[in-house]
Amino acid sequence: MKRIFKFIERYFFIIILLAVVISLFYSNSFKWVLSEYNGINMLNLLLSIILFTMGTTLKVDDFVTVFKNPKEISVGLLAQYIIMPILAFCLAKMFSLNDALTVGIILVGTVPGGTASDVITFLSKGDVALSVSLTAVSTVISPILTPMITLLLIGNQIHFNPFDMFISILEIVIIPIILGLTLNYKFPKFCDELKDYLPAISSIVICLIVAGVIGANKQAILTSSVIIMVVIILQYFLAMFLGFCVGHLAGMDKKQIITIAIELSFQNSGLSTGLAKNHFPNLSQATVPGALYSVWQNFAGSILAYVFRRYV
């Protein structure tokens, strides 16, 4: 059984591509991902599962690391919540994206770093402790910063309620993390045994979310895929390049520079998709950038991890 989960973790980029192909040919197969059952929003539930698994891998000591390495953490967080939102906004303006795609791209830029960054950092021989700390802290402060920055960037042209987004992120992100953290505190041995399975579980859930969103927006993706894919690829590689620049200018060592670059380019695209669906229901295409970014970051990230490991 453990081998199966390790296989899923190692070849995640292939599995997510298969999920995309299936969702394009059989779009109704994953229709349930964006549905509600007995009042339960399935997309939010799936996102909560990912954040809960992340919580079970964390300990209070992980947050103490923030105070031991204030420089690296501060630089990473400032880059996360300043560079990424501005980059997203500039790309949306440069390519004259419509309101829906603009919302989607900006949400990709304003959400915290994704949990996949920790895995890619490990594979790239980066600073895993720094990656985990950055992901955890950026996620914990996201209920305040994500709605606030999103409001600053698009509030004048597209109406939404930042307080509702704050509550939504608390429910989807913070509560599951606290539950996972509590479980790890109460039953550390049990959670330690789960570590071999959790990355694969998160990977499967991400595949389901991506497949659901792509299936629901099949026509929109097929008609606008060229422009939006160019924007997404640029967003990803520019984020990584800027991460390298920031790390170098901050005087970090090679492992830390690689980590900052990966942390910036790997966003919690699943969360951006969920926020787009929940808070911009009239802009159905707003969910598309998050889904496509998830596919691209995991596909490209797996290849780059090999490059970093061998040549950097």
Rank of each mutant, 00 (worst) to 15 (best):
I4N: 08
I4C: 07
F5H: 03
K6S: 14
K6D: 13
K6N: 13
F13L: 11
I14P: 08
L17A: 15
L18T: 12
A19S: 15
I22H: 11
F25T: 14
F25L: 15
Y26Q: 13
S35N: 14
Y37Q: 13
I40D: 09
S48Q: 11
I50S: 04
M54C: 09
T56N: 01
D62L: 04
F63R: 11
V64T: 14
T65K: 14
V66P: 03
F67T: 06
K68A: 10
N69K: 15
I73A: 09
S74L: 15
V75T: 08
L77Y: 07
M84A: 08
F89I: 01
C90D: 00
L91T: 03
A92S: 12
F95Q: 03
S96F: 12
L97C: 06
N98H: 09
N98C: 08
D99T: 12
V103N: 07
I105S: 06
G109E: 04
T110F: 04
P112K: 02
G113L: 06
T115R: 09
S117H: 07
S117G: 09
V119G: 03
I120M: 11
L123Y: 08
G126P: 01
V128Y: 07
L130K: 03
L130I: 07
S131D: 02
S133H: 03
L134V: 06
A136G: 06
V140A: 15
P143E: 05
I144C: 08
T146H: 01
P147R: 07
T150Q: 05
L151T: 14
L152H: 12
L153E: 04
I154Q: 05
M165Q: 07
I169N: 01
V173C: 08
I174Q: 11
I174D: 11
I174S: 10
P176E: 10
I177C: 06
I178N: 04
T182R: 01
L183W: 04
F187S: 12
F187L: 12
P188M: 00
F190W: 00
E193D: 14
L194N: 02
L194Q: 01
Y197T: 05
S202C: 11
S203G: 15
C207L: 09
C207A: 13
G212R: 04
G215L: 05
K218M: 09
I221R: 04
S224H: 15
V226D: 13
I233T: 12
I233W: 09
F241Y: 14
L242A: 10
G247P: 00
L249I: 12
L249M: 14
D253W: 02
I257H: 01
A261L: 00
E263A: 02
S265W: 05
Q267Y: 04
S269A: 13
S269L: 05
S272Y: 07
G274E: 02
H279Q: 09
F280E: 00
F280C: 04
L283E: 04
P289A: 08
G290Q: 07
G290K: 04
Y293Q: 05
Y293V: 02
S294N: 15
F299D: 00
F299R: 03
F299E: 03
L304A: 13
A305S: 10
V307K: 13
V312T: 14
